[in-house]
Design a protein around this nucleic acid. Structure first.
Length: 166
DNA sequence: GCCAACGTTGGC
DNA sequence: GCCAACGTTGGC
């Protein structure tokens, strides 16, 4: 039985640029996506992300907020080391090394766009009306993005289509 | 800085 | 297992 080649999924990951910006990712090349403490977001990283998946990098809690570039998943899931570090703000005293509660992936820099696609633009675009990030009150920091939405955001950004990324 | 929306916790 | 209280997110 032949197995279909793994489908590339698309994601959106939020970061406050004061904490970790796309410029910082570009400088470092890659990073462990530390500090996620939401089970839905964790489950996406643990269960659904695959190496090679492309990620819209989104700057949140800034004016304006918006999508600023692309990253790529570049590791299998593994325990977030900060949960064991009692000096870290992300320390979780209820987590153990035997049964770690928080799982992350590494992501690598792909590209920074020439301009931010702001949340206002995303909200104004009819083709994106069902995209999770534009829904009122949603605040999930790691979310799946439908292929059509992903391609549309790249188009708004003036970026190359996903098939030729990387 | 405000506060609506939402996720988590814990008492029962 | 319900749900009120609480804490956090994140746009505005």
């Amino acid at each position: 039985m032949t197995k279909k080649s793994a489908k590339i999924r698309h994601w959106l990951m939020k970061s406050e640029p004061d904490v970790f910006s796309i410029d910082e990712l570009q400088r470092l090349g890659k990073t462990a996506w530390e500090g996620v403490r939401n089970y839905t977001a964790r489950n996406s990283m643990r269960d659904d992300m695959k190496i090679g998946d492309l990620v819209i990098f989104y700057h949140s809690s800034v004016e304006p907020a918006g999508a600023v570039g692309l990253a790529r998943v570049c590791s299998a899931p593994y325990p977030d080391p900060t949960q064991f570090d009692d000096k870290s703000e992300y320390f979780d005293p209820k987590s153990t090394r035997e049964a770690p509660r928080w799982i992350l992936v590494d992501v690598e820099f792909v590209e920074k766009w020439g301009r931010m696609v702001t949340l206002a633009e995303l909200k104004a675009d009819k083709a994106l009306k069902d995209m999770l990030v534009v829904q009122k009150g949603q605040r999930l920091s790691v979310q799946a993005v439908a292929d059509k939405h992903f391609e549309r955001v790249l188009k708004l950004a003036g970026a190359k289509p996903a098939e030729v990324q990387g």
